[in-house]
Design a protein around this nucleic acid. Structure first.
Lengths: 240, 240
DNA sequence: CGTAGTCTTGATGTGGGTCAAGTTGCGTGG
DNA sequence: CCACGCAACTTGACCCACATCAAGACTACG
């Protein structure tokens, strides 16, 4: 029996064909043979919100895809200052092939399910499969583009523009899943995590959220959700 | 006759075996067959300092490796604010396979020589060569790591730490090529370009360069060069 | 219903931005 | 070889967006 009967098991197994991220993850281009090879070396694992997945400077024996939830990547200076350097959603890849030692901490921002592969068999599978390697390159280029967009945000945007850019990204992601465009969007991050992402402090994030609401750019009743009445308006506020 | 006789020709050809970046570029893992295939589709081209190589939103028919010189990648907001999002050195790759339209401007920061490949034959060559594709993935992961390091710099470091980090990167690159460790390092960027890279203004860069000199962290007589008497001291100043 | 984490709001401080005025360096042409 | 002109750089005076410091309020969970 597969894991549907055990939704919160820490280790479990779901056939790739039934996987919700089949079309978006590293396996997106895989053919039947490749998929069953992947199927043979994978296992699902759950992480509660706040749990560490990878630690900077530590060798990790696994890599994997996010099936459910949000993972944050953080880099720190020795004196404790910390900056989030990546935010990963379902379908995104955690850990890098040919880079056993992580360059940053990866932490579950929400409850997370990963589809894990042992590093060694995954790498040899990739070496034999052009599709898999091409997909990996593609995903890495997408991440690089996103990181560069973020460099522009951190280097040149005001606090209000940064918040708007972040909310815009979430609104666009939410728009991809069908539903009422004016529905509440659940924020996957706390104010403190948003600050870590945006290169700001908690207080500045909180103040500008309040102001964006006062100016009717967004609406919210609880701190962990927002409504976006007009994407166009939010785009203006984001600065680009 | 090959281009050694025509050092400033805009188009020319050098056998890969004689190429100074043979070991560091996308061709680093290529075997004999792959190398001669690359040799067949490549051409060298020179760009004077300041020349545009790629423009944001424009389809580029070529990709290529930097043979000589420094290339800067810049992203701009509609109101003119601009942030450098990458700085590429000899061996680095310009343009992305499977991404015909650039996401940013690429400009020659110094006089530059590129080893250009037509996009289509390069991509099909890559599809057929595991070594080439693996090298490409490897280089992209390295760029991603560098971009994330830069996110930490832009998000959390002070102006003095940013300058020190930048100078440290140059000092480490210079240390790779043999020579007097206390020799002058030529700065590939103007104060304005350094500011664009570091998320600062020209004035702030200039002031902190002056202060770092006053504090004996660095030495310089002309604006376009520095001496680093102690790498260890510079590392302290860089914050990590 | 207590307590701890999260969020909001206010008062004040400061690093880096802005504006402005030189200065230095260098290529061009007389 | 020098004079001109322009771009790059430096330095100073002032300003402001965001950080810091400090209370209090809300929420969730035992």
């Amino acid at each position: 029996m597969e894991s549907f009967a055990l939704p919160n098991a820490r280790f479990s197994h779901v056939r790739c064909g039934a996987c919700p991220i089949r079309e978006h993850a590293v396996c997106a281009y895989a053919n039947g043979d490749e998929l069953s090879a992947l199927d043979g070396i994978k296992s699902y694992r759950d992480y509660a919100a706040g749990r560490d997945i990878l630690s900077a400077g530590v060798r990790a024996p696994m890599v994997g895809s996010i099936v459910r939830g949000v993972v944050k990547l953080t880099k720190s200076l020795p004196d404790g200052r910390a900056q989030m350097v990546g935010l990963l959603f379902p379908g995104d890849f955690v850990g890098h092939p040919s880079r056993a030692e992580a360059e940053f901490d990866a932490t579950a921002a929400t409850d997370v399910t990963l589809c894990l592969f042992q590093r060694a068999p995954f790498e040899s599978l990739m070496r034999g499969s052009h599709r898999l390697e091409q997909r990996m390159l593609d995903m890495t280029l997408t991440e690089l583009d996103a990181a560069r967009e973020w460099l522009l945000l951190l280097g040149r945007k005001t606090a209000r523009e940064r918040l708007s850019s972040f909310l815009l990204m979430l609104a666009r992601r939410a728009a991809l899943t069908p539903g009422d465009p004016l529905a509440e969007i659940a924020l996957p991050l706390t104010r403190g995590e948003m600050a870590a992402y945006l290169g700001l402090t908690i207080e500045t994030v909180s103040r500008h959220m309040t102001r964006l609401r006062a100016d009717d750019v967004i609406g919210f009743d609880t701190a962990r959700s927002v409504r976006v009445p007009s994407i166009a308006r939010l785009e203006e506020e984001a600065g680009d």
